[in-house]
Amino acid sequence: MTLVATRKLTPSSDTSIKHVPVKLPKAIVLFIGGAGDKRPFILGEYPQNPMGANQNILDVVHYFMKRYGGKIKEGEVLADPERTYFGYYEIYGDDRIRTNILPLIKTKSQKIIIIGHSLGGWNGIWLSKKLSDWGYSVELLITLDPVGTGLIVKTFADIYKEKPIGDANVWINLTYGKDDDASDAVALAGGRFNPKGRRVPLPNDPDVNEVININHLKTWDAMSYRLSIGKTAWDFLDFSLQ
């Protein structure tokens, strides 16, 4: 007997809705830039006074794309410079979070990873708290030299005025210790923030809260810095993305 395989077609009379399974990423990685990162930072209405270097966090984004390219290609991780790279101002306030962030998250079981630099670290801490309060799973929060205590940035920048409170399964905070170039002067003016005691439940600390010998504009260098525990921030990412 010869068996002939035939394709079974849905009759034209069948108008029922067909559900096609869609593979969702297990993790969504949000990269949050600081002042002058995604757009120039302007003091008030004076465009001749931009502050900060451009696209510092993209050094981390581009390396991330190479390091985890396989997971991204397989759809296990959502991360790219077009869809998950934000300026600090784009995650300021509930409305902007709902508009810019929530559409990326399809289920509350997906892991959320936040990597924020400078003002992006400050607002990123608040983002972790808000998402956690709304029932989302913030697996890892990495803050690179968070800034936001200074009067100038509180006056002119779209940042939360209160000191942030973080809420994540793992929180790595790296405060930069150098103050010998222009970017460090910007960080000092903006007010570097040490989140000691600012983790849910208060007054807990980040899992790692170290000062490292890095200039403020450096992001990839900070992520690759060997900490006192013998690990780098990339090592924590490796574990979170398993």
Rank of each mutant, 00 (worst) to 15 (best):
I57Q: 07
S132E: 01
M1G: 15
S137P: 00
R226Y: 02
N209G: 02
I97Y: 02
Q48N: 08
R199F: 02
M1K: 14
I113S: 03
G121L: 03
K130Y: 09
P195T: 13
T15L: 13
I97T: 03
Y176T: 12
P203S: 12
I91P: 01
A222V: 13
A27N: 12
R98H: 06
K161P: 01
D59C: 05
I17M: 11
T155F: 01
G52F: 09
G121N: 02
S12T: 06
Y136F: 14
L174Q: 12
L58M: 14
G190P: 07
V186E: 11
G34V: 03
S240R: 09
T149V: 07
G116K: 09
V20H: 09
S12G: 14
F193V: 12
S137G: 00
P40I: 09
E82S: 13
T155I: 09
S228C: 01
S109I: 05
P146T: 10
A53G: 12
V186C: 03
L241Y: 07
I101N: 08
Y68V: 12
R226G: 00
S132D: 04
L9R: 14
G87I: 08
N100G: 03
P50F: 06
A185R: 15
F193T: 11
H19D: 04
I212F: 04
D205N: 15
D95M: 09
D221F: 05
F31M: 10
D158S: 14
A5V: 14
P146C: 02
S183P: 05
K108I: 05
N215V: 04
K231V: 06
L119G: 05
D207Q: 15
